[in-house]
């Protein structure tokens, strides 16, 4: 289109692209600082560290018990994905297909966890989880992280289900299929892209979600992001390069999951739950 050329030449166009470039340069600077610092022997003054080493990765790997953290993080994330998909999918189906008295109120109870800062409901939730004697346990962390994940699955899946022609289900029912058969043989194969998107988005979200895990976890049930927070917060105990190395471990985990996720979901789908919440 010719209008695009005009846009790029206009001063406003340059301003916009300049701002985007400025944003990305700083982002690169932030990430680059962490990576460079993790490989440096000493970096107090100057553009770069005075020497290079990988020994701080060994330090971080052992001192922060990274293998353990990775195991906990993956266990929590996978459990949250499985539970939220199993619980959320049937609910998403009903909410996408049916109108019934009280639907609005029900929707509100699914929307509130998204509209509230996690720390707001996280504190009463943590108090409750501690009272159930699940505080500091893996189960407690999984339960806490499932709370925002279920509404997330419902909101991501609803548009996928709405797209499926109800006549297909009606036809199956006419041919004598039971509800269970319709679910397993008709709907599941049709919403596989939606399920995949929801699962991957919940995975990305759970690995990065800090507040809820922070409030509930204890030694042995900390996830990578919470351990990273403690490492940064208590900086001075260990060399700053080790903290940077720890940050690189976290970054690699997140980016790995993100790259896998972006093969199957569009970047704009990362925010799609908010979009579909709006249309309700």
């Amino acid at each position: 289109m010719s209008s695009r050329k005009v846009f790029v030449k206009s001063p406003l166009g340059w301003l916009i692209w300049g701002s985007v470039a400025f944003f990305f340069i700083n982002l690169l600077g932030v990430i680059g600082t962490v990576v460079v610092s993790s490989f440096g022997t000493e970096w107090f003054d100057g553009w770069l560290p005075s020497g290079w080493t990988t020994k701080f990765y060994t330090t971080a790997w052992h001192d922060y018990q990274v293998p353990n953290l990775l195991r906990v993080t993956l266990q929590v994330a996978l459990a949250v994905v499985v539970i939220s998909i199993l619980v959320g999918t049937p609910a998403a189906y009903v909410l996408a297909r049916r109108d019934f008295p009280g639907k609005k109120i029900l929707m509100l109870s699914f929307l509130l966890p998204i509209m509230l800062p996690p720390i707001t409901y996280g504190i009463p939730l943590a108090t409750f989880i501690y009272r159930l004697n699940l505080g500091g346990t893996l189960t407690g962390v999984i339960v806490a992280n499932t709370v925002p994940a279920i509404p997330f699955v419902i909101l991501v899946l609803s548009p996928f289900i709405e797209q499926i022609d109800p006549k297909i289900e009606a036809a199956a029912r006419m041919c004598g299929a039971t509800t269970r058969q319709i679910f397993i043989k008709i709907l599941t194969p049709l919403i596989v892209p939606g399920l995949l998107a929801a699962a991957l988005l919940v995975l990305v979200q759970t690995v990065a979600l800090f507040e809820l895990t922070y409030l509930v976890s204890g030694p042995g049930s900390n996830t990578l992001v919470v351990a990273l927070y403690y490492a940064v917060f208590a900086s001075g105990i260990r060399p700053y390069q080790a903290i940077s190395a720890m940050a690189v471990f976290y970054m690699l985990t997140t980016l790995f999951i993100l790259i896998v996720a972006l093969r199957y979901v569009n970047p704009t789908q990362m925010v799609s739950q908010a979009r579909s919440a709006d249309s309700k």
Binding site: V20, F24, N26, L27, G29, V30, I31, G32, T33, V34, S37, F44, D45, W47, V204, A208, L209, F210, V225, L228, Y229, V232, Y240, I243, S244, A247, Y250, M251, T254, L255, I257, L258, L262, N266, P267, T268, M270
Partner: peptide, 30 residues
């Protein structure tokens, strides 16, 4: 652009905070 923008979002506040604390320091790159 979309893909690159998703990165800071999914890295989360803790990592960005850790990076910024070095990047914005008086002797940092910025």
């Amino acid at each position: 652009i979309n893909t690159l923008l998703v990165i800071p979002m999914s890295l989360g506040t803790v990592l960005i905070a850790e990076g910024l604390s070095a990047y914005l320091a008086p002797n940092g790159w910025f």
